[in-house]
């Protein structure tokens, strides 16, 4: 890995390794490889951690606070989004002690509805953009998409990278697109979706993670949720290693968001264990780790009330939105 002069920050470092297409390529291909068998094994071992009682209580509340409650359907309507926002603000109407979710995540057209509904609460509005989920449109269209979302009041923008460019080795093009999107975001936080299910190898996941971080992404996110496999533990492990190493090298902390396929509280807790033992507890905060999910929230609520009361309530006691 490139060594960095002491005191150099993220900007200087990024400027150096991304100076030319060749230097960027050299840097990304010089990253240590990922051994798939070993990475899968590590993730599987951490998945056997047994989180009980007080630790479970703490983890469930944290996981609820980390949920980006998501609806990304062609059939989304203002009514659907308003219901989702209400759920995010008060996930468990029966329990005032239940924390709110981190954000709602919607298409740009529904950002105005979401912004209006969550106003005054701590829930943020995230919008997918850049021709989500494929990203296969000209850059100018992507930037318009982002501008529209930001203008409508989105706090966070979830962009997709151009996997076609990435897989054909045009790292520089991907880099420049992310930089342009970041600029279009203005004050909004940028989450960069790598769509790891389309990247094919863990080496590519690591390279794409570094590419997104170098380009100024605030978060790296696994998936759109429209491609299978979506988030997995090993892929998230590799991304957590990347943000850990990036901070060590540059001093800048980047968030991680696994999205898609995380449905149970048990799974969510496994991700938190992974965060805890890979990147460390600095990342155990909604500012640095999120879950892109929808049905997960109800399972978290169900397990939470089970811990509090000692019994499982039926699914009808939790709202379907």
């Amino acid at each position: 890995m490139t060594t960095l002069p002491a005191g150099a920050g993220a900007a200087e470092f990024a400027a150096e390794v991304t100076a030319t297409a060749a230097s960027l390529r050299t840097f990304l291909h010089g990253l240590p490889g990922v051994d798939k068998v070993g990475a899968d094994q590590r993730a599987a071992t951490l998945a056997t951690r047994s989180i009980k009682t007080t630790a479970k209580q703490w983890a469930l509340d944290l996981a609820i606070r980390m949920v980006d409650l998501t609806t990304l359907e062609g059939a989304d309507t203002p009514g659907k989004v308003r219901a989702l926002c209400a759920k995010a603000m008060r996930p468990d109407p029966a329990d005032r002690g239940c924390p709110p979710a981190a954000a709602v995540c919607v298409y740009p057209a529904l950002v105005p509805t979401a912004v209006e509904t969550v106003r005054g609460s701590s829930v943020r509005v995230a919008s997918v953009a850049t021709a989500f989920p494929s990203g296969q449109v000209p850059l100018s269209v992507k930037l318009d998409d982002v501008a529209a979302a930001v203008a409508a009041g989105a706090d966070e923008v979830d962009m997709v990278i151009d996997r076609g460019a990435f897989l054909s080795g045009r790292y520089d093009e991907v880099f420049r697109q992310i930089v342009a999107v970041k600029e279009a975001c203005g004050a909004a936080h940028l989450k960069v979706i790598l769509e790891t299910g389309e990247l094919g190898t863990y080496d590519n996941v690591r390279r794409a993670s570094w590419l997104a971080m170098l380009a100024g992404g605030d978060f790296i996110k696994t998936s759109t949720g429209k491609v299978s496999p979506a988030a997995t533990l090993p892929v998230t492990l590799i991304m957590l290693e990347a943000v850990r190493d990036f901070r060590e090298l540059t001093g800048r902390q980047i968030g991680v968001k696994p999205a898609g396929g995380i449905r149970s509280a048990k799974d969510a807790i496994r991700y938190l264990v992974l965060v805890n033992e890979t990147a460390g507890d600095d990342w155990l905060d909604p500012a640095w780790f999120r879950f892109g999910a929808s049905s997960l929230l109800n399972d978290l609520l169900m397990q939470r009330s089970k811990l509090a009361t000692g019994r499982y309530a039926g699914p009808d006691y939790f709202t379907l939105d």
């Binding site: 989180i51 630790a55 479970k56 703490w58 938190l272 805890n276 507890d281 155990l284 905060d285």
Partner: peptide, 9 residues
């Protein structure tokens, strides 16, 4: 914030 694992014997 630290994630303390409760005993799980």
């Amino acid at each position: 914030m630290a994630f303390e694992y409760a005993p799980a014997p």
